[in-house]
Design a protein around this nucleic acid. Structure first.
Lengths: 344, 344
DNA sequence: TCCTGCCATGACAACGTTGTCCAGGTTCTA
DNA sequence: TAGAACCTGGACAACGTTGTCATGGCAGGA
């Protein structure tokens, strides 16, 4: 009894350490380390004794300490906007799967679209010494990451490019997607088309607006001010925009919704509207098929996967120049985008 | 020049350490620590010198080392099933917000409904020495967590209770919700009601099935075998179940869908069916309002928030007995649940 | 029998931080 | 002016692990 009682209490809550295991098994510290890590050079008999001690004490290696010693954390960080947004779930999940395949853990945090919070979060992750960082930017100045990147934190931006620094980015072709969607409406006879998007400060939102304008211009169509409404995704704001466009002197006969959140509100607003109005949205949403909503779909999982793969390629030593990868979109015609123009 | 060149290269990629900062500022190591942590006992002048050195070198405290020293990681882990499932996004986000309010980071991982992977993930998080763990169980035996919990890892289970161990759990009233939903259909005149749920191995799925049976029994209604179909959420499986129930000798006039994934498939299947069939689903889904789908809604965010708050209360030292918290559900009548029984 | 060489094992330092404690200097008081 | 009290700053150990290197034992060959 004295044998075990004499030993000082283990620390860290009350977890046993390798030292405790070593004492219990009557071997050296390093031997325990070897067993735990499956390194060669341990007799089967010794190994058994160590395993027994581990079992009895309920030892689990402290990866914090390991990380400190090894210099690599096998952890990557993902800074996104809002995990509750259905767009980011699959993206995050895809990143996680790639990380898992590389034996890494994923820490993700939401910036809530606040640039300050994005920075705070990204730097907190750097302080944890994540090996790499995937960022969906909220802000438009990422110079704060330069010291970190120089210090070796691999960084890939997703969905939107980095601001004021040169870095990898994996994007969806927002411009092309929006242009295709609007061209689709034009091909179905529409001449007066409204655009309701997110705040133009956001890169994707600006690109989609640009795509809308390009399609209209390509078709030689004018764009009235009242037809274009960038702004927040607040439902009230969006409903107002829809109402105004439909009540304008030259009312729109079709709408293009700039992202998933705008889209659901527009779908609801149009459902309450007496006259059929054509609609194409950017981003697919669940059950859109049943509602017959035509969309420009982007592949959130592919976005995440591509970014993560690029990140791990860098972590594995690839030393390529920063690159911008652009993924295409798919038009899913389901009815709402094929409604012909209807007079009042 | 010799002054700086003589010094050995910093480690960890090439990040400066407090030692480097101290040397540069011409102060002691501990003084840098004091400045970085805002501890008192440093002259404004010394502080300025240190700050400058930090700025110039681009120093950022290594939280890995800090954690090792302090014993607390200010990190909590969340093991869930699949982040791509729209149910878990808001839940995870809610946990994150609570963690943030307590100055902690969140690491979350998906078990993909695989009990082995759940265990692997949970233990990996423990090896990182998370302070606390929130688990949405996939498996039904959590004894593997006992050593960890004894060692001081606060643990709260969400959505489903822990198996074979006594632990905190925050649950939705699946039984009551399902019973209410089925009772709602009965109140609208239905006598032959089908139940399509997830695998009964899953606690919530079993509870909902039990709720269905209870409602039927309360109303003195028989339940035919063909009306009850627990199983995977695979769309093909669900479609088959719907088809069989509608084609049975005593065909159902109403359906109860056991969760969000089953529900979307049932909605699609019924949309293609000629005769109107009443439907109530467990879990709300986006745009269900427009489709007129009546549901028993649970509050995923509240689930996550409640669990996280409980976790942090434990981390702050609360030493209460493990408790089970059950959150209620809300019936949202939107039309599909109020369709009267229709003969063929 | 003795030497060579290999192999299992362990002692020790280091990773970057923080807590403890002590030293030296300044200021205030008697 | 001496002593006490206080305050700034630094030396040192410790957190739990892994990499390096030394040691001692044993088998095999001469």
């Amino acid at each position: 009894m004295a044998d075990t009682a004499r030993r000082p209490e283990p620390r860290y809550g009350n977890r046993p350490t390798m030292k405790d295991v070593a004492a219990r098994a009557g071997v050296g510290l390093k031997t325990v380390s070897r067993v735990v890590n499956g390194e060669p050079g341990v007799t089967p008999d010794t190994e058994r004794r160590v395993q027994e001690a581990i079992e009895i004490l309920g030892f689990r290696r402290n990866d914090s300490a390991r990380v400190l010693r090894k210099g690599r954390t096998a952890t990557v960080g993902l800074v996104l906007e809002d995990l509750a947004d259905p767009f980011y779930g699959p993206l995050s999940r895809a990143v996680e799967e790639v990380a898992r395949a590389h034996g890494a853990l994923l820490i993700n945090g939401s910036s809530a679209e606040d640039p300050d919070r994005e920075q705070e979060l990204a730097l907190a992750l750097c302080a944890r010494r994540v090996d790499g960082l995937i960022v969906i930017p909220s802000g438009d100045d990422h110079r704060y990451l330069e010291p970190e990147m120089r210090a070796g934190v691999a960084t890939v931006f997703v969905d939107r490019p980095a601001g004021l620094i040169d870095a990898d980015a994996v994007l969806t072709d927002s411009f092309g997607g929006a242009r295709d969607g609007v061209a689709h409406l034009i091909a179905h006879g529409h001449r007066r088309i409204g655009f309701i998007g997110d705040r133009p400060r956001i890169h994707t939102a600006a690109e989609r607006l640009r795509g809308y304008r390009a399609a209209m211009e390509d078709a030689g169509l004018p764009v009235r001010d009242v037809w274009v409404s960038p702004g927040s995704t607040d439902p009230e704001r969006v409903r107002t925009a829809v109402r105004e466009m439909l009540a304008a002197p030259e009312p729109v006969t079709a709408l293009f919704a700039g992202n998933n959140r705008v889209l659901v509100t527009v779908v609801r607003a149009l459902a309450a509207h007496p006259r059929p109005v054509a609609l194409v949205g950017f981003d697919d949403i669940e059950l859109a098929d049943l509602l017959g909503v035509t969309v420009i779909a982007q592949d959130a999982a592919a976005l995440g996967r591509t970014a993560a793969e690029r990140l791990f390629r860098r972590l594995d030593g690839a030393d390529e120049a920063p690159e911008r990868v652009v993924l295409g979109t798919t038009l899913l015609a389901r009815g709402s985008g094929e409604i012909p123009p209807q007079a009042d």
